[in-house]
Design a protein around this nucleic acid. Structure first.
Lengths: 217, 217
DNA sequence: TTATATTTTTAGATTTGTCTAAATTTATAT
DNA sequence: ATATAAATTTAGACAAATCTAAAAATATAA
């Protein structure tokens, strides 16, 4: 088992290395978790001793296989807890981060497996991010909810994650069809809604609910 | 906010002072939370400085009003989490203690209020112990051990005063559940055992040991 | 009531995770 | 290419929570 501090470093390295394939710098970690760079250096040595990261002085770090699955398991817990808080306790999706940050450190695989089942084995958390499997592996999916997409990027609609008549009829009205091109113009933090263009037509506004259920690549 | 360690001391003092009205001894706390007596002394000074306990060297401690409600809130969280684990995630009532011991330290009143609502505002946890209200106050209810009950009277089982796995498993075998009706048919002076009917089924015999640990109203 | 045992506290040390300030290494710019 | 800036590490310190061993206070027993 890892300490609370160790888990936070692993998680930070995990998130920071997501975009770049390269190594993560000491300062980046320090800024991310709000801790002095000197402290980070100390902890990196400790994590390297435990074979959780590859670390060379002044050269930055990367997770080892062990470190990656350890981090993946923490992220899994975080995202399952967020899903629980939103879908069962009716928290807003913008209110659950700090709480999940505490809950993710609860030690029990059994608990999370039961929670997973209780929630109906969700694939995405309330922000549209993938939930890693019980071994900490991030499912390699090239598709994702439009909700977690980047502004000013064009995607293709490959599916929807909801079959209700009301939803599908709405898509018809909006001329949103499987296979169409969706360009994300703007995202509003306030209510999760976004401005999009369908096949280069005039921009329309869709709610968070809709964006969450459109699966794009 | 109190540290994890502080919360554990408060909880321990709370539980230990439950029976006796007198003060709690340093050694009793040390034994309860498995920590050296010298360490307990240090922490008692700290808690006394914060006005959470009344403490005089060599004389033992008692919770102040502030300390009592602080402890009550922790106990509330513990018992709400146990209720959640058993009633929503289908854990056995004998499996949830250690997990609740972790979860009770999550910092968020909002979370517990929502959980309380989600669970339907339960009055008792899975072991039949009262759940304190949101201000940490323990409801005062008139309950007693079945052992001190009257013959030919029907009671309702509201709790058990022992948490050992052996005991809880035995109750499962005997189909004795929290909330069930217990009619006292006969009491044997000789060995303290008694003849009872559970929910009007055929009478069974239980030992004094068992009768002592069943709390009814 | 006085010696012995038990309980509690004091004193000093350790571990973990953090800090600041100074030194060192690497990167950047002229 | 070398001076300057930025990033990183080292060194030394600190707080929280713990420990062991020894001293002091309290309780018990002959």
């Amino acid at each position: 088992m890892y300490s609370l501090a160790e888990e936070n470093y692993l998680k930070s390295i995990f998130h920071l290395s997501k975009n770049e394939t390269a190594t993560v710098s000491t300062n980046a970690i320090a800024a991310d978790i709000n801790i002095a760079a000197a402290t980070v250096t100390d902890m990196l040595k400790k994590l390297a001793d435990k074979k959780l990261i590859k670390y060379q002085k002044y050269k930055g770090v990367a997770l080892t296989k062990t470190g990656l699955t350890a981090a993946g398991k923490i992220v899994r817990k975080h995202r399952l807890w967020e899903t629980f808080l939103v879908s069962k306790l009716n928290f807003g999706w913008d209110e659950v981060h700090d709480l999940a940050e505490q809950l993710e450190h609860i030690k029990s695989d059994e608990l999370m497996d039961r929670m997973d089942k209780f929630l109906g084995f969700p694939k995405y958390d309330p922000h549209g991010d993938c939930i890693p499997d019980k071994n900490g592996n991030m499912p390699t999916i090239t598709t994702k909810p439009l909700l977690s997409s980047d502004t000013n990027t064009t995607y293709q609609l490959v599916g929807v994650s909801q079959q209700s008549t009301a939803f599908l009829q709405m898509l018809d009205k909006l001329k949103i069809k499987i296979g169409c091109k969706i360009k994300v113009m703007d995202k509003h933090i306030f209510d999760g809604s976004m401005q999009i263009k369908i096949d280069n037509q005039t921009a329309i506004n869709i709610s968070e609910m809709v964006a969450k259920n459109l699966i794009v690549k």
